[in-house]
Amino acid sequence: MTIAAESSAKFGAHRGRTQMGYLILLLPLLVYLGLFYAYPVAAMMFRSIHEPRWTADNFVQIFDTGVYLHVLWLTVRIGLIVTFASLLLGYPVAYVLARVDRAKSNLLIILVLVPFWTSILVRTYAWMVLLGRQGIINQLLLSFGIIDEPVRLLNTTFAVYVAMIHVLLPFMILPLYGVMRGIDENLLRAAQGLGAKPVNVFRQVVLPLSLPGVSAGCLLVFILALGFFITPALVGGPQDIMVAVLIQQQVDLFNWPLASALAVVLLAAALLIFAVFMRTLGVEQAFGRART
Protein backbone atom coordinates (compact mmCIF):
# COMPACT_ATOMS: atom_id res chain seq x y z
CA MET A 1 0.00 0.00 0.00
CA THR A 2 2.65 2.46 1.12
CA ILE A 3 4.93 1.24 -1.60
CA ALA A 4 2.26 1.74 -4.18
CA ALA A 5 1.49 5.23 -2.92
CA GLU A 6 5.19 6.05 -2.79
CA SER A 7 5.81 4.87 -6.33
CA SER A 8 2.75 6.67 -7.57
CA ALA A 9 3.95 9.85 -5.84
CA LYS A 10 7.37 9.38 -7.42
CA PHE A 11 5.76 8.75 -10.74
CA GLY A 12 3.63 11.82 -10.29
CA ALA A 13 6.67 13.92 -9.47
CA HIS A 14 8.43 12.50 -12.45
CA ARG A 15 5.51 13.31 -14.68
CA GLY A 16 5.35 16.80 -13.23
CA ARG A 17 9.00 17.31 -14.07
CA THR A 18 8.49 16.04 -17.59
CA GLN A 19 5.59 18.38 -18.09
CA MET A 20 7.65 21.23 -16.74
CA GLY A 21 10.31 20.26 -19.26
CA TYR A 22 7.77 20.38 -22.08
CA LEU A 23 6.60 23.74 -20.90
CA ILE A 24 10.14 25.12 -20.96
CA LEU A 25 10.58 23.78 -24.47
CA LEU A 26 7.38 25.45 -25.54
CA LEU A 27 8.07 28.69 -23.70
CA PRO A 28 9.93 30.57 -26.46
CA LEU A 29 7.12 29.88 -28.91
CA LEU A 30 4.44 30.77 -26.39
CA VAL A 31 6.14 34.06 -25.57
CA TYR A 32 6.57 34.78 -29.26
CA LEU A 33 2.94 34.00 -30.09
CA GLY A 34 1.70 35.88 -27.05
CA LEU A 35 3.65 39.00 -27.86
CA PHE A 36 3.29 39.12 -31.61
CA TYR A 37 0.04 37.32 -32.17
CA ALA A 38 -2.29 37.05 -29.19
CA TYR A 39 -1.62 40.53 -27.85
CA PRO A 40 -2.10 42.37 -31.17
CA VAL A 41 -5.24 40.37 -31.95
CA ALA A 42 -6.61 41.13 -28.49
CA ALA A 43 -5.69 44.79 -28.91
CA MET A 44 -7.47 44.84 -32.24
CA MET A 45 -10.56 43.29 -30.71
CA PHE A 46 -10.42 45.79 -27.88
CA ARG A 47 -10.14 48.66 -30.34
CA SER A 48 -13.29 47.51 -32.12
CA ILE A 49 -15.31 48.10 -28.96
CA HIS A 50 -13.27 50.73 -27.17
CA GLU A 51 -11.97 53.71 -29.05
CA PRO A 52 -12.09 56.14 -27.53
CA ARG A 53 -14.70 54.75 -25.11
CA TRP A 54 -16.87 51.65 -24.73
CA THR A 55 -19.13 51.44 -27.73
CA ALA A 56 -20.89 48.92 -29.91
CA ASP A 57 -21.35 51.47 -32.70
CA ASN A 58 -18.89 49.82 -35.05
CA PHE A 59 -20.71 46.52 -34.91
CA VAL A 60 -24.08 48.22 -35.18
CA GLN A 61 -22.82 49.94 -38.29
CA ILE A 62 -21.63 46.67 -39.80
CA PHE A 63 -24.94 44.93 -39.20
CA ASP A 64 -27.01 47.98 -40.11
CA THR A 65 -25.28 48.74 -43.38
CA GLY A 66 -26.13 45.85 -45.63
CA VAL A 67 -23.00 46.16 -47.71
CA TYR A 68 -20.61 44.69 -45.14
CA LEU A 69 -22.65 41.55 -44.64
CA HIS A 70 -23.23 41.32 -48.37
CA VAL A 71 -19.49 41.42 -49.04
CA LEU A 72 -18.84 39.03 -46.17
CA TRP A 73 -21.31 36.62 -47.74
CA LEU A 74 -19.64 37.00 -51.17
CA THR A 75 -16.29 36.26 -49.52
CA VAL A 76 -17.61 33.20 -47.68
CA ARG A 77 -19.31 31.93 -50.84
CA ILE A 78 -16.11 32.22 -52.86
CA GLY A 79 -14.27 30.49 -50.01
CA LEU A 80 -16.75 27.59 -49.92
CA ILE A 81 -16.76 27.08 -53.68
CA VAL A 82 -12.96 27.19 -53.83
CA THR A 83 -12.71 24.74 -50.92
CA PHE A 84 -15.15 22.31 -52.46
CA ALA A 85 -13.52 22.43 -55.88
CA SER A 86 -10.05 22.02 -54.35
CA LEU A 87 -11.29 18.95 -52.51
CA LEU A 88 -12.72 17.42 -55.68
CA LEU A 89 -9.50 18.08 -57.58
CA GLY A 90 -7.06 17.37 -54.77
CA TYR A 91 -8.49 14.16 -53.35
CA PRO A 92 -7.69 11.90 -56.33
CA VAL A 93 -4.23 13.44 -56.59
CA ALA A 94 -3.51 12.78 -52.92
CA TYR A 95 -4.85 9.25 -53.30
CA VAL A 96 -2.54 8.51 -56.20
CA LEU A 97 0.40 10.10 -54.36
CA ALA A 98 -0.21 7.88 -51.38
CA ARG A 99 -0.60 4.69 -53.39
CA VAL A 100 2.30 4.84 -55.85
CA ASP A 101 5.79 3.84 -54.73
CA ARG A 102 8.12 6.25 -52.95
CA ALA A 103 10.22 7.20 -55.94
CA LYS A 104 7.20 8.15 -58.03
CA SER A 105 5.42 9.88 -55.20
CA ASN A 106 8.49 11.99 -54.44
CA LEU A 107 8.56 13.17 -58.01
CA LEU A 108 4.84 13.91 -58.01
CA ILE A 109 5.12 15.74 -54.69
CA ILE A 110 7.67 18.04 -56.28
CA LEU A 111 5.17 18.76 -59.02
CA VAL A 112 2.66 19.74 -56.34
CA LEU A 113 5.21 21.79 -54.46
CA VAL A 114 6.69 23.80 -57.33
CA PRO A 115 3.59 25.96 -57.71
CA PHE A 116 3.35 26.05 -53.91
CA TRP A 117 6.78 27.67 -53.78
CA THR A 118 6.07 30.07 -56.61
CA SER A 119 4.94 33.55 -55.65
CA ILE A 120 1.20 33.96 -55.63
CA LEU A 121 1.52 37.00 -57.85
CA VAL A 122 3.45 35.10 -60.46
CA ARG A 123 0.75 32.46 -60.56
CA THR A 124 -1.99 35.03 -60.74
CA TYR A 125 -0.26 36.81 -63.60
CA ALA A 126 0.16 33.49 -65.34
CA TRP A 127 -3.61 33.12 -65.30
CA MET A 128 -3.95 36.56 -66.78
CA VAL A 129 -1.78 35.39 -69.67
CA LEU A 130 -3.86 32.25 -70.12
CA LEU A 131 -7.35 33.70 -69.72
CA GLY A 132 -7.04 37.03 -71.54
CA ARG A 133 -8.94 37.90 -74.69
CA GLN A 134 -5.72 37.35 -76.58
CA GLY A 135 -4.66 34.61 -74.20
CA ILE A 136 -3.78 31.05 -75.03
CA ILE A 137 -7.19 29.58 -74.23
CA ASN A 138 -9.08 32.05 -76.39
CA GLN A 139 -6.55 31.62 -79.22
CA LEU A 140 -6.97 27.85 -79.12
CA LEU A 141 -10.77 28.03 -79.09
CA LEU A 142 -10.67 30.49 -81.98
CA SER A 143 -8.30 28.36 -84.06
CA PHE A 144 -10.48 25.29 -83.58
CA GLY A 145 -13.47 27.32 -84.67
CA ILE A 146 -15.32 26.67 -81.41
CA ILE A 147 -15.89 30.38 -80.92
CA ASP A 148 -16.04 33.22 -83.43
CA GLU A 149 -14.73 35.97 -81.21
CA PRO A 150 -12.82 35.94 -77.94
CA VAL A 151 -14.94 35.18 -74.88
CA ARG A 152 -14.44 37.05 -71.66
CA LEU A 153 -12.68 34.73 -69.24
CA LEU A 154 -10.42 37.21 -67.49
CA ASN A 155 -11.92 39.79 -65.15
CA THR A 156 -14.76 37.48 -64.17
CA THR A 157 -15.68 35.60 -61.03
CA PHE A 158 -14.83 32.44 -62.95
CA ALA A 159 -11.24 33.65 -63.21
CA VAL A 160 -11.19 34.28 -59.45
CA TYR A 161 -12.22 30.67 -58.81
CA VAL A 162 -9.69 29.27 -61.25
CA ALA A 163 -6.77 31.31 -59.93
CA MET A 164 -7.65 30.79 -56.28
CA ILE A 165 -8.08 27.04 -56.67
CA HIS A 166 -4.71 26.90 -58.37
CA VAL A 167 -3.07 28.84 -55.56
CA LEU A 168 -4.74 26.89 -52.76
CA LEU A 169 -4.72 23.35 -54.16
CA PRO A 170 -1.42 22.35 -52.50
CA PHE A 171 -2.92 23.28 -49.13
CA MET A 172 -5.58 20.67 -49.81
CA ILE A 173 -3.33 17.99 -51.29
CA LEU A 174 -0.59 18.01 -48.67
CA PRO A 175 -2.70 17.28 -45.55
CA LEU A 176 -4.72 14.71 -47.52
CA TYR A 177 -1.53 13.04 -48.67
CA GLY A 178 -0.13 13.00 -45.14
CA VAL A 179 -3.20 11.25 -43.78
CA MET A 180 -3.59 8.84 -46.69
CA ARG A 181 0.04 7.83 -46.48
CA GLY A 182 -0.65 6.76 -42.91
CA ILE A 183 -3.44 4.37 -43.89
CA ASP A 184 -2.21 0.82 -43.38
CA GLU A 185 -2.22 -1.00 -46.72
CA ASN A 186 -2.96 -4.25 -44.90
CA LEU A 187 -6.42 -2.89 -44.16
CA LEU A 188 -7.08 -2.49 -47.86
CA ARG A 189 -5.75 -5.97 -48.57
CA ALA A 190 -7.84 -7.38 -45.76
CA ALA A 191 -10.95 -5.73 -47.17
CA GLN A 192 -10.18 -7.09 -50.61
CA GLY A 193 -9.42 -10.51 -49.17
CA LEU A 194 -12.79 -10.48 -47.48
CA GLY A 195 -14.39 -9.94 -50.87
CA ALA A 196 -15.01 -6.20 -50.97
CA LYS A 197 -15.17 -4.64 -54.41
CA PRO A 198 -12.78 -1.73 -55.07
CA VAL A 199 -15.68 0.74 -54.71
CA ASN A 200 -16.52 -0.66 -51.32
CA VAL A 201 -12.89 -0.71 -50.23
CA PHE A 202 -12.77 2.95 -51.01
CA ARG A 203 -16.14 3.83 -49.49
CA GLN A 204 -15.82 1.81 -46.32
CA VAL A 205 -12.09 1.90 -45.61
CA VAL A 206 -10.19 4.63 -47.44
CA LEU A 207 -12.77 7.38 -47.25
CA PRO A 208 -13.50 7.18 -43.51
CA LEU A 209 -9.79 6.91 -42.71
CA SER A 210 -8.94 9.90 -44.86
CA LEU A 211 -11.56 12.16 -43.28
CA PRO A 212 -9.06 13.85 -40.91
CA GLY A 213 -7.10 14.91 -43.99
CA VAL A 214 -10.27 16.13 -45.65
CA SER A 215 -11.21 18.30 -42.71
CA ALA A 216 -7.68 19.64 -42.22
CA GLY A 217 -7.34 20.45 -45.93
CA CYS A 218 -10.77 22.06 -46.13
CA LEU A 219 -10.11 24.20 -43.07
CA LEU A 220 -6.76 25.37 -44.37
CA VAL A 221 -8.07 26.23 -47.80
CA PHE A 222 -11.21 27.87 -46.57
CA ILE A 223 -9.55 30.06 -43.97
CA LEU A 224 -6.83 31.12 -46.38
CA ALA A 225 -9.47 31.87 -49.03
CA LEU A 226 -11.33 34.20 -46.66
CA GLY A 227 -8.36 36.54 -46.52
CA PHE A 228 -7.69 36.59 -50.25
CA PHE A 229 -7.05 39.95 -51.69
CA ILE A 230 -4.61 40.16 -54.56
CA THR A 231 -6.01 37.47 -56.82
CA PRO A 232 -9.57 38.84 -56.96
CA ALA A 233 -8.17 42.34 -57.45
CA LEU A 234 -6.12 41.22 -60.45
CA VAL A 235 -8.30 38.70 -62.26
CA GLY A 236 -11.75 39.35 -60.80
CA GLY A 237 -14.74 40.98 -62.39
CA PRO A 238 -16.02 44.48 -61.62
CA GLN A 239 -18.14 43.30 -58.70
CA ASP A 240 -15.79 40.83 -57.04
CA ILE A 241 -15.11 42.56 -53.75
CA MET A 242 -13.63 40.62 -50.87
CA VAL A 243 -14.08 41.65 -47.28
CA ALA A 244 -10.33 42.34 -47.03
CA VAL A 245 -10.85 45.20 -49.49
CA LEU A 246 -13.42 46.81 -47.21
CA ILE A 247 -11.14 46.43 -44.21
CA GLN A 248 -8.34 48.12 -46.07
CA GLN A 249 -10.70 50.88 -47.16
CA GLN A 250 -11.52 51.65 -43.54
CA VAL A 251 -7.82 51.62 -42.60
CA ASP A 252 -7.28 54.15 -45.37
CA LEU A 253 -10.04 56.31 -43.98
CA PHE A 254 -8.32 56.17 -40.56
CA ASN A 255 -11.45 54.49 -39.26
CA TRP A 256 -9.39 51.87 -37.48
CA PRO A 257 -12.08 50.94 -34.95
CA LEU A 258 -14.44 50.02 -37.78
CA ALA A 259 -11.64 48.21 -39.60
CA SER A 260 -10.96 46.28 -36.40
CA ALA A 261 -14.64 45.48 -36.01
CA LEU A 262 -14.75 44.15 -39.57
CA ALA A 263 -11.69 42.03 -38.88
CA VAL A 264 -13.37 40.72 -35.73
CA VAL A 265 -16.49 39.81 -37.72
CA LEU A 266 -14.34 38.01 -40.27
CA LEU A 267 -12.52 36.20 -37.48
CA ALA A 268 -15.83 35.25 -35.88
CA ALA A 269 -17.14 33.93 -39.19
CA ALA A 270 -13.98 31.85 -39.62
CA LEU A 271 -14.27 30.49 -36.08
CA LEU A 272 -17.93 29.71 -36.58
CA ILE A 273 -17.22 27.69 -39.66
CA PHE A 274 -14.32 26.06 -37.85
CA ALA A 275 -16.77 25.04 -35.12
CA VAL A 276 -19.16 23.59 -37.67
CA PHE A 277 -16.35 21.51 -39.12
CA MET A 278 -15.45 20.31 -35.64
CA ARG A 279 -19.03 19.38 -34.92
CA THR A 280 -19.56 17.44 -38.10
CA LEU A 281 -16.20 15.73 -38.33
CA GLY A 282 -15.13 15.61 -34.71
CA VAL A 283 -12.26 17.38 -33.01
CA GLU A 284 -9.88 14.46 -32.96
CA GLN A 285 -10.70 13.83 -36.61
CA ALA A 286 -9.52 17.20 -37.71
CA PHE A 287 -6.25 17.15 -35.83
CA GLY A 288 -5.68 13.53 -34.91
CA ARG A 289 -4.01 10.95 -37.07
CA ALA A 290 -5.86 8.31 -39.01
CA ARG A 291 -6.82 5.54 -36.63
CA THR A 292 -5.36 2.55 -38.34
Binding site: L35, F36, Y39, P40, V41, A43, M44, R47, L121, F229, I230, I247, Q248, V251, D252, W256, A259, S260, A263
Partner: peptide, 24 residues
Protein backbone atom coordinates in the same frame (compact mmCIF):
# COMPACT_ATOMS: atom_id res chain seq x y z
CA UNK B 1 3.09 50.28 -30.26
CA UNK B 2 2.65 46.63 -31.16
CA UNK B 3 -1.00 46.98 -31.85
CA UNK B 4 -0.59 49.94 -34.15
CA UNK B 5 2.19 48.19 -35.96
CA UNK B 6 0.06 45.14 -36.20
CA UNK B 7 -2.90 46.96 -37.67
CA UNK B 8 -0.50 48.72 -39.93
CA UNK B 9 1.16 45.64 -41.29
CA UNK B 10 -1.88 43.41 -41.35
CA UNK B 11 -4.38 45.75 -42.82
CA UNK B 12 -2.57 48.58 -44.43
CA UNK B 13 -2.15 47.64 -48.01
CA UNK B 14 -2.80 51.22 -48.82
CA UNK B 15 -1.64 51.98 -52.28
CA UNK B 16 -1.93 55.59 -53.17
CA UNK B 17 -0.89 57.77 -56.08
CA UNK B 18 0.36 56.38 -59.35
CA UNK B 19 3.65 55.24 -58.02
CA UNK B 20 2.18 53.83 -54.89
CA UNK B 21 -0.26 51.81 -56.89
CA UNK B 22 2.50 50.48 -59.08
CA UNK B 23 4.59 49.69 -56.06
CA UNK B 24 3.16 46.23 -55.53
Amino acid sequence: LEDRKFIESLLSLALRSPHAADYG
